[in-house]
Each structure stands twice: as structure tokens, then as C-alpha cells.
Amino acid sequence: MKWMKWMVLASFAALIVGGCTPGKTYERRLKRELASGIRYDSLFMGLSFGMTQKEFYEHCWDMNKDSIIKQGSANMSVQYDLNEELEHPATMNFYPKFDSGKIVEMPVRFIYNGWAPWTKELSASNLALDVKNWYEDIYGKGFITVTHPMNGDAYTKIDGNRRITIYVENDLYVWARFTDMLAGLEKDSLSANQN
């Protein structure tokens, strides 16, 4: 009991005190992009920020009928098979976050299909780099590397209101998170720094 209390408090403290110091490059870019007034709402596969829940379902329904996507393997998301886009066959699962009925964030989880503990070239670390390179082809150059004390490195890119962050969850999975920075959902200290 005591050790658990201590563990929780210490862990929060580690996150708060030991967290990364805001970097000037990131802040500068964020400030510049938000001030630009340009909106970048497009995500992927015809999805975009601001789509209503109904529009999202209908669009996914159409893609499902066309066998482009299917129910995610964890029964919680939409699945798309990446056969050519990355260095190795992979799977991406996504399901948006809605605020006031509209898409404001899109977390996307990736895994190399051939992943196993012994296939180091298919590690999540390599996958993150692979996803970043693929996204540079789609969304353009400009990803910067940020470091997290527990989850290693992450890549982030900001275009207008759209921030894309790519990071490793664990040995298997990589996340790409599209966030509408003007949607009021962002709660981290970065947005607070801009106010």
C-alpha cells in the first residue's frame, strides 16, 4: 500500500519534473503555424478534421464495401493493410476522437505484420522511422525529433492547425497522432505556452 502510494506520487513527479524542457524550435514552429491562419484539415483516405460522426461512418462504410478497410483486429478500430507503402508489410488501425460530434484528433496505430521479438529489423523503432519517411512523402519534409524520457524519440510536424506526432508505444506498436491544434482538445503544455 505504502509503496504503491509512493510509486504513484513519484511517477507523477517524474512526469512533471522530469519531463522534457520545451524546445525553442518546436515552440517557434507551433507559434508560426498557428498564427498563419491556414487550415490543414486533410488527414488520409479522404478523412479530415471536422467530419461529423455520421460522415465518418458513411465514408468508412463506403471504403469497407469496396474492401479497402475492415474492422480492426482489436474490434475497436478501422483497419487498413499497408502492403506497399512501407519498407515491410504493415497494418494501420485508426479511430478518431470526436469533440462536439466532429473529428478533432486521429490516432493511428502501426505494426509490422512480420513482427516478432527476434526480427530486429521489424522493431517499432525502425517502424517509426519508416512511418516518418512515408509521411514526409505525403505531408512534406519538416518533421523534427523530440525526446521523451520513457518512450524514446518522437517525430512531430506542424502545418497550420494540424500537428502530426509519431512515437513508439512499446516493442510492437508505433502511433501517429493527428491533432487539430485549434480544436480545443490539446491540453499539453505546448499549447499553453502559446497563450
Partner: peptide, 13 residues
């Protein structure tokens, strides 16, 4: 957590 902004370029390892 995505609030980390140490901008040192580091490769995943």
C-alpha cells in the same frame, strides 16, 4: 505524452 520538446536529433535505438 507529447509535451517533450528536446530537439536534439537522436536516432531510434
Amino acid at each position: 505524452n507529447q509535451s517533450c520538446t528536446n530537439l536534439d536529433e537522436e536516432l531510434y535505438g
